[in-house]
């Protein structure tokens, strides 16, 4: 199950999810096995065998799957910027 909000801000407004560098990824699928939130989707018969299907399922500020990735193909947005954005959004909502 995923949360709909993060600290009161609608989850879809927060840009936080893994980015796959397809020039590095070797489709070992370790990240898929690791993450319990159905963020990734495997597509056996397509050229990109792995996509970030549900970015909003990703836990804000988690980067755990990148630590399972041998070729270092996963990256994330800048935490400082995302934090600032969340604070701004909270201001707007007041």
């Amino acid at each position: 199950m995923s949360e709909d909000t993060f600290m009161g801000v609608p989850r879809e407004k927060i840009d936080w999810s893994p980015r796959i560098d397809y020039s590095k990824c070797n489709y070992c699928m370790e990240c898929v096995k690791f993450c319990p939130h159905q963020v990734f989707e495997v597509r056996e018969h397509e050229e990109k065998k792995l996509i970030v299907k549900n970015p909003q399922n990703c836990i804000v500020f988690c980067r755990a799957c990148s630590k399972t990735c041998g070729p270092d193909a996963l990256s994330f947005p800048d935490k400082g910027e995302v934090t600032r954005k969340i604070k701004e959004l909270r201001e707007e909502m007041k």
């Binding site: 690791f34 500020f61 988690c62 980067r63 755990a64 630590k67 399972t68 935490k79 400082g80 995302v82 934090t83």
Partner: peptide, 19 residues
């Protein structure tokens, strides 16, 4: 920074980044 990394802990299962 808030939500920045404060080291890691690790088991046979996984690495956890301390947020």
């Amino acid at each position: 920074e808030q939500f920045g990394e404060l080291g890691n802990i690790e088991s046979g299962k996984a690495v956890f980044e301390i947020v």
